[in-house]
């Protein structure tokens, strides 16, 4: 039996009508125990939505997500998520962040054992010297390690990695890739990695699946990465299989992108010109709903600004001329 099964799942946001945005449609995916699967797609194609569906943070509009044979109704520690933006609680230290999870999930253990448990995972991600530091005192890589340690400490069945390395510089990114692979190899925990970096996906995963560009993004054909481990990040570039998988994935993604553009022009459907709501802004009293942010407005503003700058530059030139 598959560990995780997604069947005909569709998900969209917004009320029915022109503001409705269909994100995912007809998603089918099966993941086996111990597998390392990566899903590659464009930014904004719905990858995070997909992982939230798997985690149970959101529910599909149609179709089912089954985990170990039973449908996923809510989030839970057996499906730990490493969030794209770390999601560390800034008022807790590295230790505190990990301990929050441990104290909640292993309340049966005594204090000492729980502490040992926390330290085990902090050590696993090489953060022991920073155990008493606050997130604000950490670099991006260290923050993501903390997040990773927290998720691992939950001892989940599946680790869902939501573009964990997206915001990191290349060097840190490489180091962390190695570490994640090492951890995976150590106990072969099921991992689902979401990324927009095809190379990363191929390097790390057993199986790579492209996600077409939205709206109504679909999964492409799964490609098995049959490159023996440990994989060397420099050597792998010359591996023919790597190159082929890479080509195929990219072709699929490009094609799907063109498709969706074509579709759009064919069907004369204008995309809802709405940017995602910025949840970090405080809600306002009286008008709880903000007017939607529209891309067109932003573009117009940018164009105006540019024009203004140009005009200013022209003025300057004239001045210089004079």
């Amino acid at each position: 039996m598959a560990l995780l099964e997604i069947k005909d799942v569709a998900k969209g946001y917004g009320e029915a009508g022109p503001d409705r945005a269909e994100i995912l449609a007809g998603i089918n995916l099966t993941i086996q125990q111990g597998e390392f699967v990566s899903i590659v797609g464009y930014s904004g194609s719905g990858k995070t939505t997909l992982i939230n569906l798997i985690a149970g943070l959101i529910q599909p509009d149609s179709g089912t997500v089954t985990f170990k044979g039973s449908p996923v109704r809510e989030a839970g520690p057996e499906r730990a998520v490493v969030f794209q933006n770390y999601s560390l609680l800034p008022w807790l230290t590295v230790f505190g962040n990990v301990a929050l999870a441990v104290d909640q999930l292993f309340s049966g253990l005594n204090r000492k054992d729980r502490e040992a448990h926390v330290m085990k995972y902090i050590r696993m991600v090489n953060l022991e010297p920073a155990r008493d530091k606050y997130p604000s005192e950490l670099s991006g890589g260290m923050r993501q390690r903390t997040s990773l340690a927290r998720s691992l400490a939950m001892e989940p069945n599946v680790l869902l990695l939501d573009e964990p390395l997206g915001a990191l510089d290349a060097l840190t990114r490489a180091t962390l890739q190695e570490e994640i692979i090492k951890i995976w190899e150590a106990d072969r925990k099921t991992m689902v990695l979401i990324t927009n970096d095809v190379d990363e996906g191929i390097l790390m995963a057993d199986r790579i699946i492209p996600l077409s560009a939205g709206p109504q993004a679909k999964l492409g054909p799964a490609l098995t990465v049959d490159i023996p481990r440990p994989r060397d990040r420099k050597a792998i570039n010359h591996e023919p299989m790597f190159q082929q998988i890479r080509r195929e994935v990219i072709r699929f993604l490009l094609h799907s992108h063109k498709d969706s553009l074509d579709n759009a022009s064919d069907q004369q459907v204008t995309l809802p010109d709405v940017l995602p709501e910025d949840l970090t802004l405080p809600p306002r009293f009286w008008h709880p709903k903000r007017p939607p942010l529209r891309r067109a407005d932003l573009e117009r503003a940018a164009a105006e600004r540019e024009a203004q700058l140009k005009a200013m530059a022209a003025d300057k030139e004239e001045e210089v001329m004079a």
Partner: peptide, 20 residues
């Protein structure tokens, strides 16, 4: 009220995953 209402969604997701 504003502070509570604007709690980072990710923090709440963490809470959900941990089933607090």
């Amino acid at each position: 009220a504003v502070g509570v209402a604007s709690t980072d969604k990710d923090f709440l997701n963490v809470a959900k995953v941990l089933k607090l």
